[in-house]
Design a protein around this nucleic acid. Sequence first.
DNA 1: GACATTCCATACTGCCCGGTATGCACTCGG
DNA 2: CCGAGTGCATACCGGGCAGTATGGAATGTC
Lengths: 205, 205
Amino acid sequence: MTQSEQESLATRDRLVAGAFRLFARKGFRRVSLDEIAAEAGVTKGSLYWHFRSKQEVIKAASGYYYRTYQRRMNAAIASARDPYDRLVRALRFAVRTCLLDEPNRVFTMEVFTHAVHHEETRAGWRQFYDSVREFYVGLVEAAIVSDEVFTPSPRDAVNTMLATMEGIKLRALFEPELCSSREEGRMLQSLLAVFTRTPEPVAQT
Amino acid sequence: MTQSEQESLATRDRLVAGAFRLFARKGFRRVSLDEIAAEAGVTKGSLYWHFRSKQEVIKAASGYYYRTYQRRMNAAIASARDPYDRLVRALRFAVRTCLLDEPNRVFTMEVFTHAVHHEETRAGWRQFYDSVREFYVGLVEAAIVSDEVFTPSPRDAVNTMLATMEGIKLRALFEPELCSSREEGRMLQSLLAVFTRTPEPVAQT
DNA sequence: GACATTCCATACTGCCCGGTATGCACTCGG
DNA sequence: CCGAGTGCATACCGGGCAGTATGGAATGTC
């Protein structure tokens, strides 16, 4: 790869990372392409050489977010060997992200609303979330084998847990007082409780 | 009240209800004030006599949503006397709304994103949600007295349940296959399970 | 029955911002 | 060393839409 090609890629990376930062602070609509270009130290002419439209920038910024999240999640549990410990660390990382990482909250919120009206965005998030789900199912199944958690259906339990997690992220948006380490522990407990539940009672109609 | 005053109020009501309908279909940004006025059979001149800005229209539409939701919720449980039955009916109504009522999903999603960047919207939703929370706490406490559910802390349990509920609404956005009566029953069960949980284990660090 | 006020229509303004057209320096292969 | 394409900057356009200015008919008031 020539030097100019490297610089081009570097510019593109700066555009994507800067776009994510701005989107995660002000939302898609309130960030103009001029602003994104300026953040990366270039102008809109350059931006339109790398991307065909604002939508493509949003897509690239989303991809950046997905990759970053998964990388940080892996780093958070990498040092643990014990299956239950790995599960707990993953949940703690997730809760901490939901409660304390405001850019994360803003960006995902933005993705959700955008996804409502945009099929491609919806598909992208769904794929990301599918891999997150599989990640947790793997952790839970491993923890079950080592006999430290129990749930009749790991997949169902993970689905419930993920739903609760998203709800916690929402609450954090409206109740900033949740962003304390004390609350963090409580949240972690209510998530773990999903995986130590006795079989559910029969449905009533 | 004179006849013209009544007609004026009626126009305002049509504007608010129409605005909600349009917002719940296309989102705040994709709906123009001309469109809202046309939906109510008037023009923007009239709209600007009733409201000072688009933000005020959004606020009014949100109020309309809050009132409507609480009214429908009350209607859903009104016919039941047994405390446990009332709780189950409330949860079923909520789950059904999350899974099947698409306008509801779109509108609340829009409110969330808007709330991120707008303090007043955030305060409005928070107040609404506080009253929803109190409503459920009342139902749960009544059900405890009649000895059909158990939870060490009704308020904490309701918080967890509400978080899960919001997460379910989100999943429904990305997984349309969830919108079946079979899934509805499963969701109801996982929510009820929150209120029949044994005390949670001690936190691990 | 003048006159004010209410309630609404018409027409217009101005800004923001996504997208485009074009020019230009640089480098890279032949 | 020279064309060709790359990687950007500059300048401009135009559509969409919130908000305004103004007129006018109906209603209510004295």
